[in-house]
Write a protein that binds this DNA or RNA. Structure first.
Lengths: 163, 163
DNA sequence: GCACATTTACTCGGATACTATATGTCCGAGTTCAAACGG
DNA sequence: CCGTTTGAACTCGGACATATAGTATCCGAGTAAATGTGC
């Protein structure tokens, strides 16, 4: 099991969108170029995230492209993961205990499946950790950790790319 | 993304193996029958878990089958998940920050990738939760929650299945 | 009666197909700006 | 000179192939008890 590569792409992309000047947008193709990713695939992922209401797309001749739909501190990592992977739990109980020769009718069971409960609890810890970090946190982190050379290059690149 | 169905199978199977009388084993076919699962596939999963050293297989004419290789309180849910899904992290960083027109040489970066750090931290919370629950805990839970009818049936079924 | 070799019953183990999901790609639909045109 | 119309530039959006990982299955390899045989 592994997370979709789209999660990583969208985390980086949303961080970049958060760093744009207010009101500005950046096309999917530019995001792909900046990150060295396949453009068509990134576009697909952006659509998915847009459908979830995390980013929004502008159209038209100029200033079209993607931008964050909410303030960066109101978008959590969990929002992005759920948008791409879907909101269903990563462990899904297939109700094994209801099957086999010794099982009783499902209505007889009162407690939830112990296995399911344990896995859900662990998953909940994961989701809470994801929900406690926002795009704004990532923006701050990259600003602090940035290599000066990269920061300069990126600034110039953005000036040339934003119309 | 979702966990392999094998994880659920193995959690239930290991719990059952823990409930066997000491020294006894249960063949894969019997485990599959009890849980209403496809026998061939369960066998494959059991091999994987055996390779990880969590269960061991006895061979020969009688008393062959699988049994726990360690005390139930020394086998965590994390052990089982790692055995099936592999020990690699579910989020793997492809070093996007090293790519694209603005990236510098990898040797220039000192801090770890912020995105990777955040995802690893969340994953760590998940792993710790999994590591804090053992097969012994599951054994206790099913014993408490068991429907009487099921407990009786299972006891009889085991007597007939264990040689 | 006892020890040894052989048979037999029973199982695990790895190699092998099939299917669902994730990845990668394409072309048409939609929106806005800007220039051209006519009054 | 100004309002309207027309066109073009630029992008998103969903529909369409391909690759990878999960699911399902089979038959040969291996072990220990039970049996038969000879001493």
């Amino acid at each position: 099991m592994r997370l979709s590569m789209g999660v990583e792409s969208m985390l980086h992309s949303c961080t970049m969108l958060g760093l744009l000047p207010p009101g500005k947008s950046l096309p999917a193709a530019k995001l792909a170029e900046y990150h060295g990713l396949p453009a068509a695939y990134l576009a697909k992922q952006l659509q998915t995230v847009a459908a979830a209401g995390l980013v929004e797309a502008g159209r038209g001749r100029v200033n079209s492209g993607y931008r964050l739909a909410r303030p960066p501190d109101d978008i959590t990592l969990l929002d992005i993961v759920d948008a791409i992977e879907g909101p269903q739990p990563i462990f899904r109980c297939t109700d094994i205990r209801f099957r086999g020769p010794c099982a009783a009718d499902p209505s007889n069971y009162t407690a939830v499946c112990a296995v399911n409960a344990a896995m859900r609890q662990a998953e909940q810890a994961w989701r809470e950790a994801l929900a406690s970090t926002t795009i704004a946190d990532l923006m701050a982190a990259v600003a602090v950790d940035a290599v000066p050379e990269v920061a300069d290059k990126s600034s110039i690149w953005l000036q040339n790319s934003l119309r």
